[in-house]
Structures are given as C-alpha cells and as structure tokens.
Design a protein around this nucleic acid. Structure first.
Lengths: 201, 201
DNA sequence: AGCGGACATATCCTTTCGTATAGTCGACCT
DNA sequence: AGGTCGACTATACGAAAGGATATGTCCGCT
C-alpha cells in the first residue's frame, strides 16, 4: 500500500514514517506541505494523509482540493483540531480523521482501515468532546432552573414539572421565565431546543 | 493475540475463524453461546467478541456479565442491530461494535484495534443511520404540517407561524395538532424536540 | 358523480403559558 | 445591623395553546 503523508512538522513526519515503514507492505512518501502533495499525488497512492494545519491547507479547503486532484482516499491528520473539525472533514468526504495523540500501533491500523476504504474516526475523540459546553450553562442556571429545564426538554407542562420536583406551579413558571432569559429563549420551546443544542440532557 | 468469539451461527463463526486464523499472530477460540464463552473466558484473551443475538445475551445484559467476568476488552458483533444498540453498547463499556456486513480485511483491522484497547465503531454505520427516519416523517407529514413543524422547531408561536406562511392562526393550530398526533407528541415542545431528534430541520 | 384526503376557516371553550407584582426566608457581604 | 441577592411562594390577568366540532374548497381517484 502506498501512502502519501503531508505534514510540515519534520519531527511528526519522521516519526510516522518510521513506524509505517516498519510494516513490510507499506510504502510512504512524505512531503512538507499541500503544494508538494498536490504535485506528487499523481504517482498513485492508496491513501493521502493531510495535516490539518500546514501551508496550503486553509482549513478544510485543502481537503477539497486534494479530493478533486485524486481518486485516492484522503484523510485528515491533526494535533489540535476538535471534534467539530473532524465531523466537518468527514462530511466533506474525508475517509478519516486521525488525531496525533493516537498510539503508533493504532495509527497503523487506522491507516490500513482507511486505505481499504473504511471510514475511520476515533470514537473516544468524537464523543468525549461533547462534554465541554455544559459548563457554561450549568454555571449560569441554578439547581432549580436546571431541574425545570430538564422538564422542558421532556416536553412536560409546568404542572407536571411542579409535581415532579414538588414545587408550586407558579414557582415553576418563575424558573421557566428566568431560565428562558438566561438561555436567550423567547419561550419554553426555544428554551428546550437551546438546552438540547447546548448538550444539556 | 488471543480472541474469544461467541456466535450461535455456525456459518458466521466458521467464516470469521477462517479469516482470523490466516493472520499468523491471531489465535481464535470459537464457541456457541454466552454460557460457553463465560466458561472459557478465564483462559486468557485479549479480546472477546459477542454476538448480539445469541443464547444467553438477553440484549446487552450479556455484555454486562462478560465485562464482570473478565478484564479483557469485550466487543459486540451483530448482523442486525441498529445504531442505537451500537451506541448503547459503547456506553456500557464495550470496546467496539462490529456489524457483520463489514468486509473481512476490515474485520481483522477492527479486531487488532480493539485488542489494543482502541474503541472501534464503523463511522458509516454510526452516522448514516441518522438519515433513515426523515423519510418516514416527511412522508407522513403533509406539506403544510412540515411548514408548521419548521416553525415549531424555531420556537415560534402559532400567530408568528400564521404570519409567516400566510394562514389564519386557527388553521395553524389545526396543523400543529395533527402534526403532534403524527409525531407522537403531547404538545408543541415535544413535537419540536421529536422533529429535531428525527433530523428534520 | 361520488368519495376521501389535504387544506382552510370559523366558533366555542378549557387549560396552560407568560408576565407583573409583592412578600417571606435564609445566605452572604462589608 | 442593614443591605442585597437568590430561591421560593402567592395573586391575578391577559395571551397563547389545545381540543372539539362544523363548514366549505380544491383535487385526484374510481
């Protein structure tokens, strides 16, 4: 299998090359940036690995360009990008997303996966990032408000929420109102949507 | 690496064993059901593969049991289960989820991944399932109902929706009610949540 | 010609929401 | 000790939402 690796960090490049070439059936060509990669991609590769932040990439536009230039599978390699970028890359047709934090053996496996046409993205990485935003909201909302918003997110009425957390309905209304204000919502429906959006519940 | 495979379909079992044993460093023990698997798991394995629907499994309870019985990584193998089951399995600590539709080479790669402690789930499988339900809903909801639900999903009031699509408020109410019924929602908030959940808008 | 589905409108009525206002209570400043 | 703030309770009222039922149009199908 022939792999084209493009990364502007020499150390990263050398490390990856060193590991990949230990595999008897892997052949790796490493280049410095997207331009070089574009130049050499015609040599025929099974998989192209592009660093997310290197000269010529311009975010995911580089992915776009590379995909137009070759029928080979193209994957994004990154040391910093977050889950959103990974998701976007996959949406734009990348065969995979590989964080540089990944172990060497896993990297080799991932590359085999992708070279065979299987989409790869580390599950850990894709899911755990969902737990960042809650902090902002759980900090502005009080305990009661959180309970009430939880009810909103299940489409409960004020009365039902009141029964559930043992409060007067009027009090629930108050919490709904203040929670709406904090969430920038005009009404309970928008509040529920906003809370869901933010990853609460 | 030692793999314990449990599946009640002999054909599936034999096929997988045949492929895995082609790998010089893989050693596979295949059994018929969860009970046999539990009996032999003490022999020491790097990875345990459990069929989702085989005697003794009882949904994901079998996964639970196996995880208690061994420190090895446990993955779920399934020919039919959907994305939700896969997600649940991962949430319950499975090291991976492998659909039987996967190619043999990819299967081997996935197994290496999991044996090394990397969580594996096919991205295609996990994401594409999100695009099934819309069909159902866009088909049961009429044109007007869709417009109204769109409004609901933006937290608009009936009056606002009426203005937007140039209808009387009463008519909007009608559509909201029928849409709620079709979506199995008790009120507009649940309807909005359900529509969002299903991937509409 | 007749039928049913989708759509629009109307009236009536009940429940729920949303908001304003006011007061109690305890915690935390300073 | 007085002040402030957050959480809670309480009234009260107008605005929405939700439900039922009835009428009528348009369109496609039989």
């Amino acid at each position: 299998m022939r792999i084209l690796l493009a990364d502007d960090h020499e150390l990263v490049r050398d490390t990856i090359v060193a590991f990949l070439t230990q595999q008897p059936d892997l052949e790796v060509v490493a280049v410095n940036d997207l331009f070089e990669a574009m130049d050499r991609v015609d040599e025929g590769f099974d998989l192209v690995l592009l660093d997310y932040s290197m000269p010529g990439m311009d975010g995911l536009n580089g992915l776009e360009k590379m995909k137009e230039a070759t029928p080979a599978h193209v994957a994004i390699l990154s040391g910093s990008a977050d889950r959103n970028v990974a998701q976007q890359a996959l949406d734009q047709g990348a065969i995979g997303f590989v964080p540089k934090t990944m172990g060497a053996k896993s990297l080799v496996n991932a590359i085999r996966f992708m070279a065979e046409g299987e989409v790869y993205a580390p599950v850990k990485f894709m899911t755990e990032a969902d737990e960042e935003e809650p902090h902002e909201l759980t900090k502005v909302l009080t305990e009661r408000e959180l309970q009430v918003v939880d009810g909103l997110c299940r489409g409960l009425s004020n009365k039902e929420i009141a029964r559930e957390i043992d409060l007067q309905e009027v009090t629930v209304k108050l919490h709904v109102k203040t929670a709406c204000r904090k969430l920038g919502a005009k009404n309970r429906t928008q509040a529920a949507l906003a809370a869901k959006e933010a990853g609460l519940f």
